[in-house]
Amino acid sequence: MEDLESRTKRYALAAIRVYRRLPGDSVGRVLGRQLLRSGTSVGAHYREAKRARSTAEFVAKIGGGLQELEETRYWCELLDEACELPSSHLKTFLQETDELIAILTQCAKNARHRSGMKAKGPAG
């Protein structure tokens, strides 16, 4: 099984590939930059979480990654509808987005459970 650090890096590279395939008009450029920024930051949040000094810090960093994933999903939805892309263009990327949301959500829940923290915030 691929570790999450590698998987989030692969996700960032996929975001770059999606961005490169977008139309060069102003809508494609503006929405694409947003997708590129949020999609490539997920792995950075995960790496920061791995080096957290406490469970609370870990959960907060994972929460940041979840926020970026949700934002990436939003930009993909807008791109899909506004740019009339072929359905295959974003399908795999959106599937990976949803899988990473589920994985990071579970990571935060597990960390809270192990430490006795109460669930709250975006990771929870």
Results as ranks from 00 to 15, higher is better:
L35A: 07
S38F: 05
S26T: 13
S38M: 06
G28Q: 11
Y19S: 05
H45K: 11
G39C: 02
G32K: 03
L36Q: 01
V42A: 09
G39P: 01
L31W: 00
V42H: 06
Q34C: 03
R33G: 01
Q34T: 04
L31R: 05
V27Q: 06
R37I: 09
R17P: 15
R17T: 15
V42P: 14
V27H: 04
S38K: 01
L36D: 01
R29W: 01
L35V: 10
P23M: 01
R29A: 03
I16F: 11
H45Y: 15
G24W: 02
G24M: 04
H45C: 11
V18K: 08
A44R: 12
S41R: 08
L22T: 13
S38R: 02
R20L: 06
V42G: 12
D25R: 02
V18G: 10
S38W: 02
G39V: 00
G43Q: 04
A14C: 10
G43D: 02
D25Q: 06
R21I: 14
S41C: 14
H45V: 15
G32F: 00
S38C: 07
L35H: 09
S38L: 03
L36H: 02
G32E: 00
Q34W: 03
A15N: 08
V30F: 05
S41Q: 09
R29E: 03
G43W: 05
V30E: 08
G28E: 10
R21T: 13
S26I: 14
R17C: 15
G28K: 11
L36S: 02
A44P: 13
G28N: 14
L22M: 13
G32N: 08
R29T: 00
S41F: 06
R20M: 07
L31F: 01
S41W: 05
A15I: 09
L22C: 10
L22Q: 10
R37T: 09
R20T: 14
Q34M: 06
S41G: 13
R17I: 11
A15K: 08
G39Q: 00
R20F: 01
R21C: 15
L35Q: 07
V30S: 09
S38E: 05
L31Y: 00
